[in-house]
Design a protein around this nucleic acid. Structure first.
Length: 197
DNA sequence: CAATAGATCATCT
DNA sequence: GATGATCTATTGC
């Protein structure tokens, strides 16, 4: 898809979208479009990470240098480095002072697919370009430099179609965690080919 | 197919 | 000093 056309058919999500309970924000991020530079993809899988009671969430350890943004105003990016190799993108939810975020786990590539292929030569198909939290940051060129970035303006933004077709949402346990392993806080678009493995 | 090892480092104990 | 919101390549059936 052409970026100009995409911008014409979508609006940037306002800060008020993010200033709500984390689970609602996570669910409703499904189907929205993440844009960075000349690349863009539709969000097809997310996970919610809550506050103090959610021991799987980084924010449950309290306010530290790393978790600072999670306690700040909503609509900003929380990017963290993991396993010495990968970066993961989250979007901060809840009113300022209350932690909570949505981990973006998979995208359906929409624009800049050639650029994504160059950044992820291992991918054997378009579906594999961004079907995982570490893969999508590579494909879109998102790094720790985006820590704290405002996604309601600027080169990294989330947009929603002015008119979108309905789809079915599935809820499952989150992937790759030890604590709260049964909580159904992973949300995905049923039947989508780009959800993670 | 499924299972697993290895890469590699910021963060917090 | 151990751990981890991952991914890839490789092994073995």
């Amino acid at each position: 898809m052409d970026l100009k056309q995409l911008e014409a058919e979508t609006d940037i999500l306002p800060r008020s979208f993010y200033e709500r309970p984390t689970i609602a924000v996570a669910r409703e991020l499904l189907g929205t479009i993440l844009v960075h530079g000349r690349t863009a993809g539709r969000i097809v899988e997310v996970e919610a990470y809550l506050g103090a009671a959610d021991l799987a969430a980084h924010a449950s350890r309290g306010l530290t240098n790393r978790t600072r943004v999670l306690f700040g105003p909503p609509g900003h990016a929380y990017v963290y480095f993991i396993y010495g190799m990968y970066e993961c993108l989250n979007l901060v939810a809840e009113p300022e002072g209350t932690p909570g975020c949505a981990l973006i786990r998979a995208l359906e590539p929409l624009a800049g697919i050639g650029i994504m292929r160059r950044r992820r030569p291992q991918a054997r198909s378009v579906e594999e370009l961004a079907n995982g939290p570490g893969k999508l940051t590579q494909a879109l060129g998102i790094t720790r430099r985006h820590y704290g970035a405002d996604v309601t303006r600027g080169p990294l933004a989330v947009r929603r179609l002015k008119q979108d077709a309905p789809f079915e949402i599935l809820a499952t346990p989150r992937i790759g965690i030890r604590h709260c392993a049964q909580w159904p806080l992973r949300f995905l678009i049923a039947g989508n080919r780009c959800v993670s493995r």
